[in-house]
Nucleic acid binder design. Structure first.
Length: 419
RNA sequence: GGGGGAGUGUCCCGAGCGGCAAAGGGGGCGGACUGUAAAUCCGCUGGCUAUGCCUUCGUAGGUUCGAGUCCUACCUCCCCCA
């Protein structure tokens, strides 16, 4: 887009320099607001799971930079919209979450934001409203009269998200058609309540955000703005944050810190520079130096990426510990006590556990059948010795320093600890 | 309302004469090669108390020694006509 635009504000300068900017409704308008120091911006987050995952990291980082450059970040919890259920996944028979589940998820998600943003009562302190506050009390008739009349169905039909569905003859439910109305209304409500003038989000949110701006104009808010970030994929085209083992969760109780560190450590060469810019606070000059490293030296950059990104979510100490565990495990071949640990009953171990079962217990494989196949392929190791006999049993004799080290492939290790 | 078509291995796409744990991809996982990368090559990709047993092809019945495959009803989606 406007590559020739020269931002005057630190906020936009940072976003552009680090690769966060995909589209903006009015660069100069946002720039002026940011420069003046009264930019209040929000991003909405779903409460469908009890943790956010790596996919949400990019928007969170945008809020972080906003705060660092003098703006006020507003992460909005979708407590209300989640009750309706985002219908975008096509024939995903979406199970409606109970209100209790949503509230529990919300509480769990909140913790993560504390790592990235400073909350409080001051001007640039973050606040975290929940759209349930205003959505759940809406009256249908009133909503139609006050808000619904401002929506032009003609215009909504012309929007990409809708048009593509219609052109492909795919089902578009009424509720989904309404989703953008609710989101647009959020924007207006946040403006009235908190003076929020900018909504950010992924590039897929563009249409919804612009609809909010439009609604705002009709309902008499000041000029509102939209800003989106690019859709993130790895250099090989895979979606960020999903692996076969599951999503890369941000909460430590859903994914061990060590595994989180490993996720970043295994970044593809071609992504290192981009990810350093997006997911760490390192100065851009430093990143330029790191991404220029060639051959095996790029691994140093990956370790820095992993540690910095992990420190952001889990704290510096935990990140250093993960880095240290990795160094011992991979570079020195030593069993580090801080590898992810799974407890087993001591009595069970003394009686002997089948190797296959042990690997299932450790969570390294999903079933004994899979374990069996991995044995055939030479993928399982106990205390760094390949498993060849699937009928073998683990006993107390296999304990080394009080634990049994189980490995799947070269990278995944779990310690089995009797208790 | 009438006519036509479709729903397959719980990641996705997709073949499937009445003998089917079900072709082929993609994705994923393991192995080799490397640098814990990419690319490439090879293997695996329903479950279990495992030379056998159990569960899978929209749902429920039926025909048959035997049904993903044939019949009936129902559900959902798509197309054409009204």
């Amino acid at each position: 887009m406007s590559a020739d635009f020269k931002p005057k504000s630190d906020f936009l300068a940072t976003l552009m320099e680090r690769g966060f900017l995909h589209q903006c409704s009015d660069l100069e308008g946002v720039d002026a607001k940011a420069k003046a120091g009264d930019l209040i911006a929000y991003i909405g987050f779903d409460c469908t799971a009890s943790s956010l995952h790596v996919g949400s990291l990019l928007p969170i980082m945008m809020l972080r930079w906003l705060q660092k450059t003098g703006g006020k970040p507003v992460p909005l919890m979708g407590g209300g919209t989640t009750r309706v259920g985002d219908p975008s996944g096509k024939d995903e028979s979406r199970k409606l979450l109970t209100v209790e589940q949503i509230d529990a998820n919300k509480e769990s998600i909140k913790q993560v934001f504390g790592r990235f943003l400073t909350f409080g009562p001051d001007k640039t302190d973050a606040i975290m409203p929940d759209n349930a506050e205003w959505l759940t009390t809406l009256n249908y008739i009133e909503f139609l009269r006050d808000v619904g009349r401002h929506f032009s169905v003609n215009r909504m039909l012309s929007m990409d998200s809708v048009r593509m569905r219609l052109e492909r003859d795919q089902e578009l439910s009424f509720i989904e058609f309404n989703y953008m109305c609710l989101q647009a209304y959020d924007f207006v409500e946040l403006n009235k309540r908190y003076g929020c003038i900018l909504q950010m989000g992924g590039s897929d949110q563009w249409g919804n955000i612009v609809t909010g701006i439009d609604l705002g104009r009709r309902m008499g808010t000041p000029q509102l703005y939209a800003l989106t970030s690019p859709l993130l994929t790895t250099a090989s085209g895979a979606k960020m944050g999903k692996t076969a083992a599951g999503a890369i969760w941000l909460n430590a109780d859903m994914l061990p810190v060590y595994d989180y560190w490993q996720y970043w450590r295994n970044t593809e060469d071609a992504d290192v520079g981009r990810f350093l810019r997006l997911f760490t606070d390192l100065p851009v000059d430093e990143i330029r130096r790191l991404e220029a490293l060639g051959g095996a030296e790029i691994n140093e950059a990956k370790k820095i990426l992993a540690t910095e990104a992990t420190a952001m979510v889990h704290g510096r100490a935990a990140a250093d510990a993960a880095a240290d565990t990795a160094r011992k495990t991979f570079e020195e071949g030593v069993t580090a006590a801080s590898l992810p640990t799974v407890a087993v009953a001591a009595s069970e171990l003394s009686g002997g556990i089948g190797v296959l079962t042990a690997f299932v217990k450790a969570g390294l494989v999903a079933s004994t059948g899979e374990a069996r196949r991995q044995v055939k392929g030479g993928g399982l190791r106990v205390n760094d010795v390949a498993v060849t006999d699937e009928k073998a049993a683990l006993t107390a004799a296999d304990l080394a320093d009080g634990v049994v080290k189980l490995s799947l492939g070269k990278k995944k290790h779990v310690l089995l600890k009797p208790e």
